[in-house]
Amino acid sequence: MAVQGIVVEISMSTVGNGTNLERRIQEELADSIDEELEQELGDDLLARLPEGIADIDSPQGIDRKAYFTELLRLQRELIRLQDWVVAHKLKLVVLFEGRDSAGKGGAIKRVTQRLNPRVCRTVALPAPTERERSQWYFQRYVPHLPAGGEIVLFDRSWYNRAGVERVMGFCGPDDVEEFFRTVPEFERMLVRSGIILVKYWFSITDAEQNLRFLMRIHDPLKQWKLSPMDLESRRRWEDYTKAKEEMLARTHIPEARWWVVEGNDKRRARLNCIHHLLQQVPYSDVAHQPIILPQRDHKPDYARTPVPPELHVPAVY
């Protein structure tokens, strides 16, 4: 990806001088590389990371080694939380909302990275079908709510009605008003049923979204993240702002309050979000039986059947 080509496309009046802009683009590229490194991250690899891998000099950046160290620590805590949820049959629902490219998906990925997918799952529903549009609005979300011992992360949720559906004209003013009347009662009902409900709004600036969209446009590995709807949402920034402000004002209730995550710095946003999530559920260690690997049975009359050569994947590498 040509950094200079992206720099030319971004207005200096909204982002800043060329040096700062190139630094931000390089930080974005480094973050994409780090995403793959995180998958293999462990104490042994962490110990081998050289001291000189700090980010490009940035007054607001966070040192990569410090980020990796804290991310790994928080992910260990998420495993302890997961064990507690399973042991005590808790039901945890976390909503991730925010503008396109605000960092919701990245935060969700870091939450789920080391958890058991049978315990913690992500729900990202597509546009409703014709049949779903004729149902009670919340109906298609209900089947995805957790049973005891499960964690469900919604990558966008029923708040689509207060955001994208409203701004794009997929529903009328009466539908929006009915949503605002209903959603507090719906969420109180969830909480009364024993669900722990946590709602996050990821907040980024106009200039930051502009930069992230351009990065996706110029990155073939990320172009799939940009839909025509995303591009139209960029044009309607102010409409989304008004919709977001009313949504937060009318759906911030004691039983299910909103928490705003400052998302311009991706790494800090992820760490802050995970750290905060861990504070929402009191948990402690769950006792486990020691894991003992059993000896393999050996049967003297067993002979392994050779695999035919044509079944093997070609050894290209």
Rank of each mutant, 00 (worst) to 15 (best):
R236H: 12
L277A: 02
L95T: 01
I10G: 00
R161F: 03
V316D: 10
Y137G: 00
G61I: 02
G18M: 12
C171R: 14
A256I: 06
A287T: 15
D175H: 15
A287N: 08
D83E: 15
T14S: 10
F68A: 05
Y200K: 07
P294I: 09
H275W: 08
R73I: 01
N272C: 09
D83F: 03
G194H: 08
L41K: 12
H312I: 03
V261D: 04
V86N: 05
P308M: 06
A303Y: 07
V93H: 02
R76E: 09
Y240H: 13
P143K: 08
Y159G: 00
S58I: 02
N272I: 01
H252Q: 13
H218P: 00
Q295K: 13
Y240S: 04
R140Q: 11
Q26F: 13
Y283D: 03
K244L: 10
D297F: 06
Q209V: 04
E310C: 01
Q135I: 00
R267V: 00
P143E: 08
K242G: 05
K222W: 04
T14Q: 14
W84M: 03
L78V: 07
E132C: 05
L278C: 08
A287F: 14
H276G: 07
L221K: 12
K104W: 04
H252I: 03
E262S: 13
G103Q: 03
I108D: 01
R110V: 01
R73N: 10
R257C: 12
A87K: 11
P282Q: 06
N210E: 12
E255L: 10
V123Y: 04
L78H: 07
L271Q: 01
E70T: 07
L41D: 07
L74W: 07
W201A: 00
